[in-house]
Nucleic acid binder design. Structure first.
Length: 109
DNA sequence: CTGATGACGTGTG
DNA sequence: ACACACGCCATCA
């Protein structure tokens, strides 16, 4: 097991704050935390605890690029639909409407 | 140590 | 709209 880095915990913390029925992007989280690369967010979520709602994080276009990492892959879109997020072919519908920007709506911290 | 990889994003044609 | 190149850099083999 690789050691969990500090910023991993920050990424998990922000991800846990995403409201149910909303989504955000890897880049938004990276920008909010001041991380240099959005890739790190995806890398961190790849080994996140089950407690973390990683299915609420999509790429900048609202596409479920991380679906392949769920078991089964359809689990990501399934969870989002349960929460009221419309998904069609790994694409979040009304993306702009359900998008949750940490830097604008974060009340914690 | 070295090189490849990737749940990303931006730029260019 | 589409395709490709490139910067990014922690992690993996």
């Amino acid at each position: 097991m690789s050691k969990t880095s500090e910023y991993y915990l920050d990424i998990y913390a922000v991800t846990r704050m995403i409201p149910k029925g909303r989504v955000t992007s890897y880049g938004a989280i990276a920008g909010f935390l001041g991380l240099p690369s959005a890739r790190m967010v995806g890398t961190a979520l790849n080994q996140c605890p089950k407690q973390v709602p990683a299915h609420r994080v999509v790429n900048r276009n609202g596409v479920l690029t991380g679906a392949a990492h769920f078991k089964p892959p359809s689990e990501m879109s399934r969870r989002l639909r349960i929460e009221g997020v419309k998904v069609k072919k790994d694409q979040v519908q009304d993306f702009k409407r359900v998008f949750w920007d940490p830097s604008l709506e974060l009340k914690d911290l």
